[in-house]
Design a protein around this nucleic acid. Structure first.
Lengths: 180, 180
DNA sequence: TGGGTCATGTAACCTGTTACATGATTAG
DNA sequence: CTAATCATGTAACAGGTTACATGACCCA
């Protein structure tokens, strides 16, 4: 359910086309939510059916025409409702292919698993670096005291999450190397 | 892609019906992979098409008949192949509704966000406790030195992940409370 | 004796992923 | 000049979620 709400959130910043939202999403929410373009288009359709957004067609000459979305009163209410809602499932989504693989790694030589972990470590470090580099101002939002604070907390979480993973990987490699 | 491989992994332990697998999954892999029963049935179908498993119907009188699956030679090869494969996407899956909510929490009174976080904290603690309690021996697998070690690493990850989250939540609550 | 839960599974729907389409514009 | 990328989107398919079905057995 969060994707729709993420889009509502972005639309409170400014009116946008599906394409715009897709870019915006990439620069801001993608650290903790993966969504691709076609998904965004579909969700926007449904959100319009729900009355959370309205769209208008904008003719362009040098580019394909676009459809620009804006959030409605109902959309705003829904966003606020969702923000206040305490939902246990917000924590339940968990799929970790790395752990799945590790769990069964007793079936292959240890060298392979160590190689895997080293590879993951590298990826983590790259991702961590990228976050720091890519976190941009989300456009020209008037800075209140609070909004940027929240943005900071959320992205910091991601950075620290990578730190946590790297630490765990190091320990696990170490333990594997010393397994007699 | 991991679900099929998780099922292959479980099937190396013993032959099982969809129902059995669903239970087994719950007790073992569910800490880092969510899958529900119908998904498992569907995947088993496809895995049979792929030749990774074979099934035979078993008639029962007191219960509905069942279909018992066993892993094939090809299934085993595929499992091994997958275990050795270094796949960058194993780390890329990330959807965190809590962060999504937090990101936009500038739109509601701080009290609401603090309440949310406190709620998440409670859930984390419960989940953490549950893992310790629920991690069971996965049946009567002959203990090699390695297999249990990997199981330990994987479940430990989950425990520590909760510790990490709890710590972050505490810090974030604290920061929110001191935001002027 | 009536409502849960166990043991088995199917069906329908919703969400996420991959692939494609098209006409400008930029880079090498 | 040719290949990549931008700017817009659609279509098809794969994977995940929710709801339902059925006949035993178990508990109060």
């Amino acid at each position: 359910m969060s994707l729709k709400h993420g889009l509502l959130g972005l639309l409170t910043l400014r009116k946008s086309s599906g394409y715009d939202l897709s870019k915006l999403f990439q620069e801001s929410l993608s650290f903790f939510w993966v969504a691709n373009q076609s998904q965004i288009y579909r969700e926007l359709d449904k959100m319009e059916d729900l009355g959370w957004v309205v769209s208008s067609k904008v003719e362009q000459d040098a580019r394909p025409n676009k459809r620009v979305y804006g959030i409605t009163k109902e959309g705003n209410l829904e966003l606020i409702r969702w923000l206040k809602e305490e939902n246990a499932e917000d924590l339940a989504v968990a799929r970790n292919p790395l752990l799945m693989k590790l769990f069964f790694s007793g079936k292959v030589d240890r060298e392979y698993s160590i190689a895997l972990l080293k590879n993951y470590r590298k990826i983590c470090e790259e991702a961590r670096a990228e976050i720091a580099a890519e976190v941009k101002e989300i456009g020209d939002v008037p800075e209140t005291a609070e909004k940027p604070a929240y943005w900071l907390y959320a992205t910091e979480y991601s950075v620290r999450q990578y730190d946590f993973q790297i630490k765990w990987i190091d320990e696990t490699i170490d333990r594997l190397e010393h397994l007699k």
